[in-house]
């Protein structure tokens, strides 16, 4: 009996300790300028990581996953999260206690990365993208994932095509709506787009999931043919890989607690 009572007491104590923290500190960030000297969470290796590095006196916490940074923000361990706009919207729609600050950032372009020297493949994908854009396929895919009418229906590859060879795509499925896990599968705009590209090229698509900061290394070392992960074209990245034409534009977003 005493044992049970003691354990019960112990558990209560633990819950009390956790409960102590339920009063989340107030949000103090209402503009980009407010970020000075604050703690900003980012996903390691993303554009947000690069941008946040320029904020005066800010402490940057580099999480392995965007979702971890959001979690830390909700628990007030950090003051804001800097992340790509569409992903920010996806997180905010699921977390009513979070909001996106209305701050204009420069537009960036998402593009598909491939290894330097693999220009054959790059060129073929580039041509396929041009075709998909002019046929309206790409716009159609995006409407399934972004906007009020988004129904999250994945693109269906054409089963009548005979396929030769595979394209291995490195991605980080923690970046909705571009890629995320649903029902044990990687889904999203990037996946649909690559399926459409593969239809054009008559090739098989294979998806490799990994940490975001490993994607370019995977491409340069040949572990993957392309990197497709809502990845913006930057100077540093261009030093290591080539990019196709852009397929989407995005901006950075600052996510904070609503109150």
């Amino acid at each position: 009996m005493r044992k049970t009572a003691f354990v019960a007491g112990l558990l209560t104590a633990v819950f009390c300790i956790s409960a102590c923290g339920t009063s989340v500190p107030k949000n103090t960030v209402n503009s980009l300028d407010d970020l000075k000297g604050k703690t900003v969470g980012v996903q390691l290796g993303t554009t947000g990581d690069i941008f946040a590095g320029d904020i005066e006196n800010a402490t940057i916490e580099k999480y392995n996953k965007g979702a971890d940074a959001i979690q830390a923000l909700k628990q007030a361990k950090i003051d804001a999260v800097m992340i790509d706009m569409e992903t920010a919207k996806a997180f905010v729609s699921k977390n009513p206690d979070l909001k996106i600050l209305d701050e204009p950032f420069a537009q960036e372009e998402y593009a598909i990365s491939y290894a330097k020297g693999n220009d054959d493949l790059g060129k073929k994908i580039d041509e396929a993208l041009t075709a998909l854009k002019s046929e309206g396929v790409l716009d159609n895919i995006v409407t399934h994932w972004i906007g009020d009418a988004a129904d999250h229906v994945s693109f269906t590859p054409d089963s009548s095509i005979t396929r030769n060879g595979t394209i291995t795509m490195a991605t980080n499925p923690e970046f909705p709506p571009y890629e995320s896990m649903e029902g044990g599968k990687v889904v999203g705009i990037d996946v649909d787009m690559m399926n459409a590209v593969c239809d054009k090229l008559g090739m098989e698509l294979k998806i490799e999931s990994m940490e975001f900061d490993s994607i370019i290394t995977a491409v340069t070392t040949g572990k993957a043919d392309v990197g497709v992960a809502g990845m913006s074209v930057t100077e540093d990245r261009l030093k290591n890989v080539n990019f196709t034409q852009g397929y989407a534009t995005s901006t950075q977003a600052i996510v904070v607690r609503t109150s």
Partner: peptide
């Protein structure tokens, strides 16, 4: 998001892609 030795290497990796 603790920047220990391993994470330090990861951060360098994330900017050099090497």
């Amino acid at each position: 998001a603790l920047e220990d030795l391993t994470k330090g290497g990861d951060i360098i990796r994330s900017v050099t892609y090497e």
